[in-house]
Each structure stands twice: as structure tokens, then as C-alpha cells.
């Protein structure tokens, strides 16, 4: 597909062009605003007997608590509830955004509406953010000595693999999310493009589009869950002695 995002390179820093992917920025901001809105509307009344949206938000929080509790002690893991919640919710909303429709300009085929998680930079940024946080909290909670010793456990010669593991974790965490959502969007564009080519194809491709959208919802939910879950798994490796 020739669909391409809108880029904006306002300046260079140390000879490197600082490029902004405007499409990703807009859609990710909207995803963030949706999450913000839902969370605040749900947490606004703060009733002892929750109703409506508060129930939903509390259910999500409880779900995140389940994810954390599956990996570490709640006393250690309780502080990561905001991370798990935001990751889960933002990635879920981002994944859902590309499902009902995508928008592109007619002339240049510049995409202006898609799932922001189908941008590899965004997905990898989130993954790197999570992995960096695991290192920070590993040092903070267990001390730098314990943290460094972990690279030589259980045997000293595993050190190189431990280093590779950190990069591999970052890459796989980001690429898994990006790959799934990107593939979903590419196939969606193909199906919809074929359906839009003629009236006959439109009739034929109606059912596959629906099926693929349903599958997209499934993949999007699953990937959001996996991302949050793996983030907590990596976190537990670093903050808990084992």
C-alpha cells in the first residue's frame, strides 16, 4: 500500500533531523484523551457503592491488580498499578482506533487516522520505556549490588546472554505489538480496498471485512493484555529476588 503517514521535520539536532510522525502523534493523543476521559469520569464520583462507569474502571483496575499479583507480591507490585493500567488501557484503545475506519487524504494517500500502535516507533518507545523502568526500579528497590549481581546469576558465563536478553525483551515486546496491529491494518486496507473497487466486490467482501474486524478486536485486546502482562513479568524479574 502506498498509504503513508504525515511527517514533519521542523529542525535538526546535532546533525540529526528530528522527525515527528504527525499521524501517530494525533491518534496517540486522542487515545490518551479517551483513556483520560473514561478514567476521570469513572473516578469522579468515587462512591462506596459504584455505579456505571466507576464499576467499569474498578473492574479494569482489578484486572490490572490481577496481572500484577500473578507476577509479584502486592507489596512490591502495588506501585506499578498506574503503569499497568495506563499501558493496558491506552494500548487497548489505540488498537481499537483503527478498526472501525481509517482515514487518508485522497490526493497523497497520507494516513490521518489509524491505530497509533501500528507505528513501530511508538510501540518500541513504549517497550523501551517499560524496560528502562524495570532497570530503574530494580536498582531502587534492591540496591545496585543486587541488581548487578543478577547479571551473573545463576552462572557467571550467562552474562552476555543476560545483556542480549535485555535488548531482545525490548525488541520483542515492541515488535510484537507493532507487528500484530500493523498486519491487522494492512490486511484491513487490502480487504477494504478490494471491496471498494467495484459494487460486486463490495458485496463479496462485506462478510470478510466484518470477520477481520472481529478478529482485529480480538487481536487488539489480546495484544494490550500481553503487553501489560509482559511488562509486569519483566518488572518482577528485576524487582524481586529469586
Amino acid at each position: 500500500m502506498s498509504a503513508q503517514s504525515i511527517y514533519w521535520t521542523p529542525f535538526e539536532l546535532f546533525g540529526t533531523p528530528i522527525t515527528f510522525n504527525v499521524t501517530t502523534m494525533i491518534t496517540f493523543t486522542i487515545a490518551g484523551l479517551i483513556v483520560f476521559l473514561f478514567t476521570f469520569l469513572g473516578a469522579r464520583k468515587m462512591a462506596m457503592r459504584p455505579t456505571g462507569l466507576q464499576n467499569f474502571i474498578e473492574w479494569v483496575v482489578d484486572f490490572c491488580r490481577g496481572i500484577i499479583k500473578a507476577n509479584m507480591d502486592w507489596k512490591t507490585g502495588g506501585r506499578f498499578i498506574a503503569l499497568a493500567y495506563t499501558l493496558l488501557f491506552v494500548i487497548f484503545v489505540s488498537n481499537m482506533m483503527g478498526i472501525p475506519f481509517e482515514m487518508a487524504t485522497y490526493e497523497t494517500h497520507s494516513v490521518i487516522w489509524k491505530s497509533p500502535t501500528s507505528d513501530p516507533f511508538l510501540a518500541l518507545t513504549l517497550a523501551a520505556f517499560v524496560v528502562v523502568l524495570t532497570h530503574i526500579y530494580g536498582i531502587k528497590l534492591r540496591g545496585s549490588k543486587e541488581y548487578l549481581m543478577d547479571y551473573f546469576r545463576p552462572k557467571w558465563f550467562l552474562f552476555p546472554f543476560k545483556i542480549i536478553e535485555e535488548f531482545a525483551n525490548t525488541l520483542t515486546l515492541g515488535m510484537r505489538l507493532f507487528g500484530n496491529v500493523f498486519a491487522k491494518e494492512v490486511l484491513m486496507l487490502l480487504i477494504v480496498g478490494l471491496g471498494a473497487s467495484s459494487l460486486l466486490w463490495g458485496g463479496i467482501m462485506f462478510a470478510p471485512t466484518m470477520v477481520w474486524q472481529a478478529f482485529g478486536i480480538f487481536i487488539g485486546s489480546l495484544q494490550a493484555y500481553i503487553f501489560a502482562m509482559l511488562a509486569m513479568v519483566y518488572m518482577s524479574h528485576k524487582v524481586e529476588s529469586h
Partner: peptide
């Protein structure tokens, strides 16, 4: 090349969102 702008923007957006949600809602 690497889209440093996108990276910084998404990082900032996510961090701010996480901090706000964590502090005021969660």
C-alpha cells in the same frame, strides 16, 4: 532514519498520562 520526534512525543505523552491518572484517579 529514526523518528526521534515521534519517540519523544509518545514518551512524554505516555508518561504524563500515566502520572496524571496514577495521581488523580487511581
Amino acid at each position: 532514519g529514526i523518528e526521534w520526534g515521534t519517540i519523544f512525543y509518545s514518551l512524554a505523552a505516555f508518561t504524563v498520562l500515566m502520572l496524571i491518572i496514577g495521581k488523580f484517579a487511581l
